[in-house]
């Protein structure tokens, strides 16, 4: 490792959060999830890669649970809230 490597390589593996922006999710509280980027606690900032998706198509199957939906590192989260997503992000970070 070069002695000039100032960046922690572990840091670069960000937690991927995909928020559904479909109609149903938006109505059922998903509109709040747009604010996730701003509401992240200080220690999580820079560790999350927040993205939107047109419609994740979870709402068409009852078994998937209730909207709004989000995906954290590939895991589907039902009834997502900002609080719940932050918890899930912490779970993902602890896994490493």
């Amino acid at each position: 490792m070069s002695k000039f490597n100032l960046y922690n390589t572990e840091m670069e593996k960000k937690v991927e959060v995909l928020v559904c922006y479909g109609t149903l999710c938006h109505l059922m509280g998903g509109s709040d999830l747009q604010l996730l980027g701003e509401l992240l606690p200080l220690d999580l900032q820079g560790k999350v890669d927040l993205k939107g998706a047109p419609c994740l198509n979870f709402c068409n199957e009852v078994d998937n649970g209730k909207p709004p939906f989000a995906v954290v590192n590939g895991r589907k989260i039902e009834q997502a809230t900002v609080k719940k997503l932050i918890q899930e992000i912490r779970v993902e970070l602890e896994k490493k």
Partner: peptide, 22 residues
């Protein structure tokens, strides 16, 4: 339409970039 854009994206093989602007 979310689903509509996904269908067109799939059929035409072009990516969708979802904006995060509030």
């Amino acid at each position: 339409g979310g689903t509509t854009s996904l269908i067109i994206s799939r059929e035409l093989n072009v990516g969708i970039e979802v904006g995060m602007t509030l």
